[in-house]
């Protein structure tokens, strides 16, 4: 036992024993840390560096060979002056404000409802709800794309027979058609995270609630929902991150509708800046802005939730 304690405490300087665990720990960490530096830290650093550059023409008329010059924050100013880029942020923000609550509400409702069913039925339905998570985002978008286009879609076909002519790909509706794809993909996954949390609730709590005369609805609202909170926080954070990254779905839907533009989302904007307009310096600046906004939002959400949790505990 004493060896365990000495291992958990910081070893005194000069102790011969301290070298071994330290070296072993870094040995285990090294492969991951090295690759993490190479694929996370270095690219971000390089993108920041690139975002500070701009090609400059030399010669009196600007006809000489282009050289790279230091541009300061010019690329950032340029990115933030583009109304299309700012609009793309507003668009994903609006998207997230609607899509995330709807999806989490659906996931929570399904998780709570499944919790009241018998084992076999719950298992079959859970598998049905979770299945879309195994469909890659682009494939899901191709799939729903076919279901949105009049002529192929059985949905517009059926609605047309009762006299409705829905336009899933119009200027006002395309964003929500994309939201539907994202909800379809991830609601079942989020439901599973919540179900896992519900399974961790000790059965005695339900017993106690029943003895106190609580019905199924009250048990769900007063006991299950509050205790499922950590899962909701987790799914909330990942949904915020996911929303800001919105890329594959609009890109796949784009050929089907003029409503989706080259700068529909921040990611799409940066991608087109780099590959369609060949301005990697501006694209780098846009990527850095996106990474910053995403980190601020998800850290902000986490600390907001944690602060409230601390207050509740008091």
């Amino acid at each position: 036992m004493s060896t365990t304690i000495s291992r958990t405490k910081k070893s005194p300087p000069g102790s011969r024993r301290s070298a071994r665990p330290d070296r072993a720990a870094w040995g285990f960490l090294l492969p991951f840390v090295a690759l993490f530096l190479f694929t996370f830290v270095l690219p971000l650093g390089y993108a920041v560096y690139q975002s500070l550059l701009t090609p400059q023409r030399s010669g009196a008329l600007g006809l000489g060979p282009a050289t790279l010059g230091f541009a300061g924050l010019d690329n950032y100013a340029l990115a933030l002056q583009q109304s299309a880029f700012l609009e793309s942020f507003a668009r994903v923000l609006l998207f997230g404000l609607v899509q995330i609550p709807v999806m989490l509400l659906l996931a929570t409702a399904l998780a709570l409802a499944l919790d009241t069913l018998s084992h076999r039925w719950a298992g079959i339905l859970r598998a049905a709800y979770f299945l879309p998570y195994g469909v890659p985002g682009v494939i899901a978008s191709i799939l729903w794309g076919f279901l949105y286009v009049p002529g192929v879609s059985p949905i517009t076909d059926l609605l047309g027979r009762i006299g409705l002519a829905p336009d899933f790909l119009g200027y006002d509706t395309a964003l929500w058609s994309i939201a539907n794809i994202v909800i379809w993909e991830f609601a079942g996954y989020n439901m599973l995270v919540i179900v896992a949390q519900l399974k961790a609730i000790p059965q005695e709590l339900y017993e106690a609630a029943r003895i106190d005369g609580a019905g199924a609805w009250q048990t769900a609202m007063r006991i299950k929902l509050p205790l499922a909170r950590p899962a909701l926080v987790l799914t909330g954070v990942f949904s915020i991150i996911g929303t800001l990254q919105l890329f594959a779905e609009p890109l796949v839907i784009k050929p089907l509708t003029p409503a989706v533009t080259n700068s529909y989302t921040p990611n799409l904007s940066a991608y087109n800046e780099a590959f369609a307009n060949n301005n990697i310096y501006l694209a780098a600046a846009e990527s850095v802005i996106l990474a910053l906004v995403a980190s601020v939002l998800s850290f902000g959400f986490l600390s907001l939730v944690n602060r409230r949790e601390g207050r509740d505990a008091r």
């Binding site: 800001l244 694209a283 780098a284 990527s287 986490l302």
Partner: peptide, 13 residues
């Protein structure tokens, strides 16, 4: 917490 697609373009560069 860092979005993976925000990283894709920097990785490409």
């Amino acid at each position: 917490l860092l979005p993976s697609t925000a990283l894709a373009l920097p990785l490409y560069l």
